[in-house]
Design a protein around this nucleic acid. Structure first.
Lengths: 267, 267
DNA sequence: GTGATTCCTTGATAAAGATCAAACCTTAGC
DNA sequence: GCTAAGGTTTGATCTTTATCAAGGAATCAC
């Protein structure tokens, strides 16, 4: 594990405020590891052994039932996932797999729980993180229950634009099939709905999205802070997808190998 | 606030392990209050001032967007809600209203945060509670994304049966329209789907549910611990509906005035 | 490069779910 | 008990979404 990576981990909201000694001992017990693309890191139902921190690459969290599968989140560097299962020492509710070659830091769940009791500041960070993750998941559920797929896409794109600094043109960092699954629809439906949104001020060519008429788009699908955020709570273990890149950033699919893609605090 | 109510609050997983002195001072700052039926307790978007503890009655948590509304949970005594917003000192993501006359205990959010830092055991309880709530919400999202309405109903009924001690006959404690909304469908759709489930071993007469062929039902819709629980994590702020009553328990609509209805730890 | 995946799109069709309207039933309040 | 209000069911219809199938485009491995 390189020192600069460690520094990035240290700068995460989760670890930022803990005492140096505790951070050090937590890292001492952790494993840095590389994984190839498309590797299953976690199988839902397994016991939670390690908190996972993504240092490089990206990971999809997904769930399966009766043969069907749905994307619950895509997380990129530097962020953590499956905190809740680790804290409760319970089976994972989601599976995880790398979308590209990735480097992860695995922190033993038992060490984590010990550190929680040792370090009050760390306890505060953990509880903040979890509360944020809860709210993120609540938003996800509201989005699914209150909006149709057209509206979910429109608001997703508006949110991406916001994450891109309000730019009218940006590049999706995640495959469309994953966005579709995250938003709770089939790729076909996603494709058609995007096409349908052209009438409301969106154009999409490949991974590049252009908002041609923001007002029309907002009129068609008013975003809501209580669903789309932001919440200033941007923490890990949340439920979302990485932020967009700028048009010059391409090739998009490997953006993670660059300095860092999107908001590292989104997921 | 009656002493026996206080004892029940004290017995909640959230408060059970905190030091007596801290519990006392937390309760000192709290307000016990009665509310009539159908009163809006919380409006989504408001700042989180109080942790709410239901001592008697029941409360619906719901969300709205563009005129539409969806039930996120129904919580009964004795349990808490909106912990996450209190911890983070952020706006509520959901609204809350009483479904019947209710007695609540309102604990100032600032006191809660102070107690968190004072009392390590309380910190552990809070973090457990939040992790449980997160998982509960994750289950809710999985349920919505991976199952159709027929399957959601079938698994919901199987779960209710389990909560009723495995009984083949039990009474819904919640209005069907709320169950329907919680499960993400219209009342009409719910009604028709239940009718359709008769072929798979369910009969419903009024609020009374009879499972006539459990095997058929399970075959039609296999429940999954990773969606339906249980998780042993039964905590507050979770996302669900109260457990069922037994057929003799009627009248169901007022079950809460009895000793206590269903699992008080479910919500 | 080149081949082989995998992803994305489009079209046709089917299923699932929503909406509108009306009747019925239950319950709460008087 | 009676009435009014709200919850539930049913039917007809329409919209939304999924499924199946196939062609085209991008990407990865060799």
């Amino acid at each position: 594990m390189r020192p600069e990576d460690l520094a990035e981990v240290r700068s995460l909201p989760l670890f930022r405020n803990m005492r140096a000694a505790n951070f050090q001992s937590l890292m001492q017990g952790a494993y840095a590891q590389r994984f190839p693309s498309r590797l299953e890191l976690i199988r839902q139902g397994q016991r939670a052994d390690f908190l996972h921190v993504i240092v490089e690459g990206s990971v999809e969290l997904y769930s399966e039932w009766k043969g069907a599968s749905t994307t619950m989140a895509v997380v990129g560097p530097v962020s953590t996932f499956i905190l809740a299962a680790c804290i409760r020492d319970l089976p994972y509710l989601m599976s995880a797999r790398t979308l590209e070659p990735a480097r992860l830091l695995l922190v033993p769940a038992s060490d984590l729980r010990a550190a929680f009791r040792e370090d009050p500041e760390f306890a505060v960070s953990i509880v903040s993180e979890l509360a944020g993750a809860y709210r993120s998941m609540a938003r996800h559920a509201k989005n699914l229950k209150l909006r149709n797929s057209r509206e979910r896409i429109a608001c997703y794109l508006l949110k991406q634009s916001e994450l891109a600094g309000g730019a009218d043109r940006f590049v999706l960092q995640v495959e469309k099939r994953l966005v579709a699954s995250y938003l709770g629809m089939t790729p076909e439906n996603f494709s058609r709905a995007v096409r349908g949104l052209e009438a409301d001020g969106v154009r999409m060519a490949g991974q590049t999205v252009t908002i041609t008429d923001r007002e029309a788009l907002v009129r068609a699908c008013p975003p809501d802070v209580l669903i789309d955020g932001p919440d200033l709570e941007s923490m890990s273990d949340g439920v979302s997808l990485p932020g967009p890149g700028m048009p010059e950033d391409r090739p998009a699919r490997r953006a993670a190998s660059g300095p860092r893609r999107g908001r590292e605090t989104v997921a």
